[in-house]
Amino acid sequence: MRPILLQGHERALTQVVFSKEGDLIFSVSKDHIPSAWYAANGERFGAYKGHQGALWTVDVDPTTTLLATGGADNTMRLWEVKTGREIKKWEFNTSIRRCEFSEDGRQLLGVTEKRTGQLSNIFVYDINPDPEAEQTSEESLKIVVEDLPRVTVAGFSALSHYIVTGHDSGSVAQWDAKTGELLNEVFSHEESVMDLQWSADRTYFITASKDKTAKLHDATTLEVLKTYVADTPINSAAITPEPTNYVILGGGQAAMDVTTTSARQGKFEARFYHKIFEDEIGRVRGHFGPLNYVAVSPDGKCYCSGGEDGYVRVHHFDPPYFDFKYEVEREKAREVKDHPERLEDRL
């Protein structure tokens, strides 16, 4: 199907997320206005005005009631999705690089930028899901990341057991989400981790790195399960919801190097890999700058990418996407169909 172009942002996109129902897309860019769009036809649903700096991050709660955004104006803000009303503003000493709701929507974390004299910190706030309620200004947890390199991305694992962080050095760390204690650190990547996205059940996650790879990690052990190798720095990676088994990687020549290379050279494509076999399956072209973020709809019916070129492209998948199977996958499906009891045995 023809991609839908979401035109409205005036500067490079930094993050795009789907609502958990998959019907809305929220986008933030280096212009100061978060936007909401209908995933089905690309019409703008609304904008959230108030920020005074470039925005780095956006997330939405499971009921699509509350929207959190953060950016270079050193604030993280909470909005009512429906009305565009600013509910709460938290202020920090440095900009907010990443915010994320826990799976129940009752906690919100924010990662602050490391700068001279300022460490990167992770702030966790308890959130009242009622849009009319007063939100707390006091964090329930603050992790001061002192011994590890700059935090670039962070998120809550299943049941909010852990907070997982990605670092500038390429390492991935796991913290106790209750006490803030550092539990584990693995050195998965050689260069900065640019993105971290969860599987639907938040038991595993994918990291994207400048070192041209994306890796699938077990959220409990931090073990690297799969590695996807690309030929260009990867800015973002998303896991398609089951039953499809794909991951989508987006990246391209770093924005600052783009002017020195041709568009052909830039590799501004979304790349599809088979999640289990690690093979690259296909690419989708279209952007004329690097892809800063890719996101998959929780219903698995479409994905969207936000580019340095200022566009969000929404692609709805065609039937072959859902039908494509490796021979061994078909074989397995037949086996399950013919002998359901074996499946029971295994469980």
């Binding site: 129902e21 998959g22 499971p62 049941l159 929780p298 219903d299 469980l347």
Partner: peptide, 27 residues
């Protein structure tokens, strides 16, 4: 992993599926 998670949720007195997953049901 799925089974462990389900067991854990049930033992915590939570529903089998998360709020996020339930969001899809509406549809």
């Amino acid at each position: 992993v799925t089974e462990d998670l389900r067991d854990e949720r049930l033992s915590l007195g939570l529903e089998e599926r998360t709020e996020e997953q339930k969001a899809l049901d509406v549809d």
